[in-house]
Every structure is written in structure tokens, then in C-alpha cells.
Amino acid sequence: MTWSHVSRYLIRAEWAPLAGITLFSIVALSLIAPAFLTEYNLFVMLRILSVTSVFALAQMVVIAVGQMNLAVGAIGGLVAILFGGMMEVYGVPVPLAMLIGAAVGILTGWLNGAIIAYSGINGFVVTLAMLSVYTGLNYGITESIPFYNMPQVLLDTYDGKIGPVPNILVIPLVAAALVGLFLFRTRAGRYILATGGNPSAAALSGISIRRSVILAHTVSGALAGFAGMVAVARLGTAEPTIGVDWLLPSFAAPVIGGAILSGGRVSVIGTMVAVVLIVLLENGLLLARTDPYYVQFFLGVLILAAVMFNRWRAVSAEKVTAARENAS
């Protein structure tokens, strides 16, 4: 791979315009707001990123199979309070608590997928119901009272650094790499994408749709649960409200990143760049002393703009192809 290969790849990539906008925002913000490039501010953003990126990937995997997971936040919240509760109430060591938390994430995701695959009920409805089920369990267990005493080792590891590099930089990078490998480089991942792209064609090619759907939801549950645990480490408390505000960004990031909601096409890099853009947007508005209540408004505008841009690109690409056919 020479430099020209790399640059051509970068320019042709679907997420290239998005990355351009993101870079532009970074440059603009650092020029306008002196506080932006400070180590403190960058670290604050990274902390947000460590959670958002993981639950965005959780949603993305389900979008890949052509469905939606409305319960990402609910799974994240349930795993978060179980994780925190185990450590505070029973003194379970961090690694074991993480394993159990992961198992709960996997189980809840699997349950979503199994109900959808075996009942044939629309995934939207099932995950909507499960959103309520998991949230209800969460509130039942906690009675809305957070677990405050998290082990110091968890918080220290989360905020620690190896040399100049913060530990939590690893989270989005590794999560994205693993999800990318899984979706694009393994059979099971390809089956998920094929199922999302055209379920009938996938089925007639020997792919089990049921298995793909269940697997996508299971992976999604695992990621959502992990995001919940990262959120506990970030906040230093296991709050029952973790996850309640995840739904919008969890869809926004994959969609801005170029995913097609009907399934079959998602972009890991696009999603990650979009997460950065969303975090920048929030941070920029904060630095500009905008009323934080308006963040949602601007996020909505960003989603619309990105989707319209993608649509415009798809249509003009189609026109180019048609014109070429015409000429030939």
C-alpha cells in the first residue's frame, strides 16, 4: 500500500465527507474556543465518547440485520445497576462483576433476538416491550436509588493513563475493531449483513435468518451491557437512569455514518466518526455557552442534514450510472 493507494481509498470512502466535516469542526472549535484544545476538555470528551461509541455500535449491529433495538439503553441501565450493586452490596471483585455483567447483557440481547426470531413479531415491538421490561426490573431492584460506592480500582483504571495515553482511548478503538472484524470478516457477520440486505435471498442461499437475527441481538446486548458498565466507571456511581438518553444518539451515529435502516449496509468507521461529531457538537455548544437544553435540537438538525446529504449522494450516483448506461 503506497501513499497514493491510501489517499485514494480515503477520498473514495463513503465516510470521507463526514470525516472532512468532523476535522473541520475540530479546527474551527480550536480556533474559536481556546478552551477546546485543553487537555481537560479533550479528556472530558473522551469520557463521553467511551460510552457513546459502544452503545452506538450496539445499535449498529442490529441495524445491520435490518432491525432496531429500542432496548439498548434499558439493557445498559440494567447491567449498570447489577454491576454496581454486585460490587457494592456483595463485594464482588471488579473482573468477576464485569463477567457477570457481560453475561446479563448477552442473555438479555439473546432473549430479544429469540423472541423476535421464534414469534415472528416485529423487532420494533418486541424491543419496545423489552425496553419496559428491563427498565422495570432496573427500577424494581434499585427503587431508583443509585449505588454510590464503586471500587476505587475501577475508577482509577478508568481515568488512568499509560504514559500520555488515557486508558479509555482503548475502549472505542477496540470495540470498533472487534465489531468490524466480526461483521465483515467472519461468516456469522456476513450472514447478518446478508440477512439485512435481503432476507429472502439470504434464506435461499442457505443462511438461517433466525440464527442471524438472534446473533445480531445477542451481540447488541453484549455491547449495550458493556456500555452500561463503562458508564458506571465514568460516573463513579451505578445510577438507575443510565441508558435513558441513549436511544437518539444510538440511532443517530450509525445513520449519520451511512447505515441503511432497512439493513445490510453499515459502516463501523462511519459510525465512529459520527460519534465523534455528535460529541463535538455537544461540546462545542457547551463551549459556546449555548443553553444545554438546545443540544437535542441541534442533534436533530445534524441527523436530518446528514441523512439528506447521504440521500443526495445516492441519487446523484444513480444518475451518473444511468447516464453512463445511456451513453454506452
Binding site: L193, A201, I260
Partner: peptide, 22 residues
């Protein structure tokens, strides 16, 4: 409707039946 995944590449559409061997 049943034969191809239109938004996937030629390579992926052809290889869909052999992924399990790769």
C-alpha cells in the same frame, strides 16, 4: 427479490454460498 442482495457487491453476492468454507 430472492436471488441477489442488490446493495452488496458482486464478490459478496457470489461468495454468499461459500463463506462457510472460508
Amino acid at each position: 427479490q430472492e436471488g441477489l442482495i442488490l446493495l452488496h457487491s458482486v464478490a459478496k453476492n457470489t461468495a454468499i454460498t461459500v463463506w462457510h468454507r472460508l
